[in-house]
């Protein structure tokens, strides 16, 4: 991965950083997975566990920040090493946000499951979460293998996530129009969907950071915007079937 330094402790410190990042990534993935499972299976106990687990990520981010600062101060890193360290700081911040978003989904579980919703609502959300989690997993796999050649897939996935989110948004709006009693749970679900879509964005951010760590160049800045929910208007007079 890296060329060997004369001071082997330096290598160990850098390895420790990336190991902590991976552990944080694993935690974040697990939290999002469990938050969605709690929502779909109406499981407030699991939701509580997710909310508690967020502490681990906060802790992880603080630790990585501290360690990174100490390494910079002690070793005066250059080139790849410096990018590696700064990258670790950025990735840990993104992962911490992913955890927060997962936690937010978990917090809404109680409000959503109060009136039992049709499973079709959750199915869309589950599919959206699958896409976002796949993206996060693939990005973290690239962090492990450092093979940034085909990191372009991240952009494609982001497109899919945006399209899915737009479709879900529309669907939830129609449910609300059908029956005002749906408004409370559907509004919460809208926020959940938005949170998941944001997780995809953080995964893309991480991908960009990894690209920068490995190549030293910024990823080309043609990030597409497929989120069209800002333009969705449903005709009020004619409820959709």
């Amino acid at each position: 991965m890296q060329s060997v330094h004369i001071v082997s402790a330096y290598d160990e410190e850098l390895q420790y950083l990336s190991k902590r990042i991976a552990a944080m990534g694993g935690h974040a993935e697990r939290m999002v997975e469990q938050a969605i499972a709690a929502l779909v299976n109406a499981d407030p106990g699991l939701a509580q566990k997710v909310i508690r687990d967020d502490l681990v990520l906060d802790e992880g981010q603080r630790e990585i920040d501290d360690k990174a600062i100490v390494i910079i101060a002690k070793r005066q890193p250059m080139a790849t090493d410096l990018r590696e360290i700064v990258g670790a700081i950025r990735i840990s911040a993104d992962l911490e946000r992913v955890g927060d978003l997962g936690k937010n989904v978990a917090k809404r579980v109680v409000a959503v499951i109060e009136g039992r919703q049709p499973t079709s609502l959750f199915r869309g959300l589950e599919a959206l979460a699958d896409l976002a989690l796949t993206q996060l997993k693939e990005v973290l796999d690239v962090y492990a293998s450092r093979s940034v050649e085909n990191i372009g897939f991240v952009r494609d996935r982001d497109d899919q996530i945006d399209a899915m989110y737009t479709s879900l948004f529309r669907e939830l709006l129609t449910y609300m129009m059908e029956d005002p009693r749906n408004i409370t749970p559907c509004t919460h679900l809208l926020f959940c969907a938005k949170n998941i879509e944001r997780i995809g964005d953080h995964a893309t951010n991480i991908a960009e950071t990894i690209y920068y760590i490995v190549t030293g160049d910024q990823m080309p800045a043609d990030r597409p915007k497929g989120d069209k929910t800002d333009k969705i208007v449903l005709p009020a007079a004619q409820p959709v079937k």
């Binding site: 390895q15 990336s18 190991k19 990534g25 694993g26 962090y143 492990a144 293998s145």
Partner: peptide, 11 residues
């Protein structure tokens, strides 16, 4: 040469 703890991240 790949690090296992980076590949298998689950807690």
């Amino acid at each position: 040469g790949l690090s296992l703890s980076l590949k298998f991240r689950a807690p």
